[in-house]
Design a protein around this nucleic acid. Structure first.
Length: 260
DNA sequence: ATGACATATGAGATATGA
């Protein structure tokens, strides 16, 4: 079972590139972030024609996440538990069915948090605390699960071309990295780094500005975190950096893993 | 030090992103 995550920076603006990639790669499960559209404007019919079931948690202009799967999706949950007043569409989860066992997959779009300090950074840290609490709940079941998405977290200096430029940024502040490490320390496995411990220059985001892409001035912020039961099934993890080379691309590229 | 670039909204300029 192959599971991919991709911050598409508007599904409307990048529809052709997303569907083209899906036709080529045929992931079994696809987590999308930054749809920037409401549910009724998501191209559900087009993805259904490609063989996917769609679970969408959209929002006008900002945010918006979706979970797509080749088979059925059960127990869909929209929104990250822990704050009923949070109206930002940044989390959707559901259970999909692989050859061997069910897997719960969450598509998440963790808040950017800039400028830090400030209310946006407070929101980011609060969101991360809620994600830790939710992961703790999921771990109790001992089921396989995958938390996939745009974490807006640079885990370590190796995950940025110029880490010194990010020291005071919400994506790389010590408090951000500590919160992310708290999540991982629950017993989760970060797929890409687990399989490529030494690899440098592997990024998933390049700013549109200042020629970041041709200089490979990127950061690795899109991650798939695995429960112990899912980690046991991990066979591959790859960043599809070629997607950044098209005309008018998203600023993120897909990251895809293979389980069992 | 600043802006550079992209998207959505809505019809100009602003908010957001990372």
């Amino acid at each position: 079972m192959r599971i991919a995550t991709w911050n598409v920076n508007s599904i409307k603006a990048h529809f052709e590139q997303v569907t083209s990639w899906v036709k080529d790669e045929k992931p079994d499960v696809l987590c999308l972030q930054e749809l920037k559209c409401e549910d009724h404007n998501f191209p559900t019919a087009a993805f259904e024609e490609l063989g996917y079931t769609c679970a969408v948690h959209g929002q006008k202009t900002y945010n918006g996440v979706a979970l797509l799967a080749r088979g059925k999706i059960e127990d869909v949950q929209r929104g990250l538990p822990g704050d009923a007043s949070d109206e930002q569409a940044r989390f959707i989860s559901g259970t999909v069915f692989g050859a061997s066992r069910p897997v719960t997959v969450a598509a998440l779009y963790l808040p950017n948090g800039n400028p830090a300090p400030g209310p946006k950074y407070d929101y980011k840290l609060g969101w991360m605390e809620r994600l830790v609490a939710h992961a703790q709940q999921l771990l109790k079941s001992e089921d396989a699960f995958v938390l996939a998405g745009d974490y807006n977290v640079i885990p370590a200096a190796v995950d940025a071309k110029h880490p010194q430029n990010w020291l005071s940024d919400a994506l790389f502040l010590p408090q951000t990295r500590a919160a992310y490490q708290t999540l991982v320390n629950l017993g989760l496995t970060e797929s890409f780094r687990a399989l490529h411990p030494q690899e440098q220059g592997a990024y998933s985001f390049w700013d549109y500005q200042a020629g970041a892409w041709p200089k490979n001035n990127g950061i690795r912020i899109d991650h798939l975190l695995l429960s112990p039961q899912a980690a046991d099934m991990l066979m591959a993890a790859e960043i599809h950096r070629d997607a950044r080379g098209h005309e008018k691309p998203s600023d993120h590229v897909p990251v895809m893993i293979e389980l069992q």
